[in-house]
Design a protein around this nucleic acid. Structure first.
Lengths: 202, 202
DNA sequence: CGCTCACTATGACATTTGTCATCTCACTTC
DNA sequence: GAAGTGAGATGACAAATGTCATAGTGAGCG
């Protein structure tokens, strides 16, 4: 029985190289490769592959959104996330969406092939590097509101604008920012952004 | 005559997939794959491959630095840059280093293989998407100093810190920033960073 | 030669940002 | 129902940031 695969990955070089390579395996068959989440989802839904390999950051719909949709509709597909990002939030979202694999792009292709087989055999595979790196991650000390505000800061808005979009008073926003800065040990907004980004908290 | 290749790419999945795929071609032979610029350079220097395919953003040494070093030492190697980044500065640096190819990772792998052959045959290949996207780029209105200061801003330093590291007065830095903001139509530093980054000016 | 432009600088000013103490109000929780 | 707790708010203050006018220097150019 050959395993039917769909690939969703927006970097054509990787996508095409991978597709050709997987196709060379005699029990694997790549029935489609798609460069954005929406297309990929459509084809997953109607062509019912055995395994869907999804990148996270893609146009239109992220791999995580696709995974959640598949989970919600209980489509009979094994979902594997394949990403560069060893990011706690991404990983947790993926786990909640009951994905069958979460692999980082820093593995060799043999390992990917092996993982596909294991997933089809019923295993669930989380990249060990990832799990340990996640466990090793310093815990995000920011509250939800603080994180939300930091995200607004990243967009470049002033205190006043942030206050308006979040329906808070000017002073409250400044208090939150003050607290963010002290929690992150930053001296200003930009430093805070850099720190939070480096630690995968954004 | 088979073409001997060295690959420098820090994303293992792509690196290994590509290596296997290229090796399948009967006139191509991948004699080494390396995950950082320094290692790659050493092996390029002593194993003298026909072609070196370099990613830009890698640990230790970027692909561009490797390319410059190869150019300076006049090593008899065809250099091809393979990157995600359609960034004017990167591209210009690469051209100055006399690379023989500059390709984006959004091409299919067949095209890469074909390009390798063309480069070996003496052609110089610049990704057409890139060239046109570069030509379509709005010209950077910032002066060198302004760009330099914006780069310092990105690191998160305060006006005073920037002034100190660049040996300028506090007021001068503030004037430059003021000018940057007005040129970019930004209301504050963070917005300026976002705009400059989006337009590939950083 | 004069002109423009980039670079550097000052001072004065308004605004924004960051800090801190303090307060209210709605919810738990015991 | 009293004591916490956490989200949100205020006001006052200091420091940083942004704006503007003005000015000196030197390089490059027609």
């Amino acid at each position: 029985m050959t395993i039917r695969l769909i690939l969703a990955e927006d970097q054509s070089l990787l996508s095409s190289a991978l597709a050709q390579l997987l196709d060379l395996e005699d029990d694997l068959e790549v029935i489609g490769t798609y460069g954005d989440g929406e297309e990929a989802f459509k084809h997953i839904k109607y062509e019912k592959p055995d395994v869907a390999i999804l990148d996270i950051e893609m146009p239109k719909k992220t791999g995580l959104e696709v995974a959640e949709e598949i989970d919600r509709q209980k489509l009979p597909v094994k979902v594997m996330i394949l990403t560069t990002f060893a990011n706690k939030n991404y990983f947790q979202t993926a786990v909640k969406a009951h994905v069958h694999g979460y692999l980082l792009k820093d593995i060799p292709s043999d390992e990917l092939i092996q993982s596909i087989h294991e997933v089809v055999a019923g295993k669930t595979i989380y990249s060990p590097e990832l799990v340990s790196s996640i466990l090793g991650d310093v815990d995000n000390p920011l509250s939800d509101k603080e994180t939300q505000i930091l995200a607004e800061i990243r967009k470049g808005g002033s205190t006043a604008e942030i206050a308006k979009t979040l329906y808070l008073s000017n002073g409250t926003v400044r208090n939150y920012i003050s607290s963010i800065l002290s929690k992150l040990g930053a001296a200003n907004r930009i430093e805070a952004l850099n720190i939070a980004e480096k630690r995968h908290w954004l």
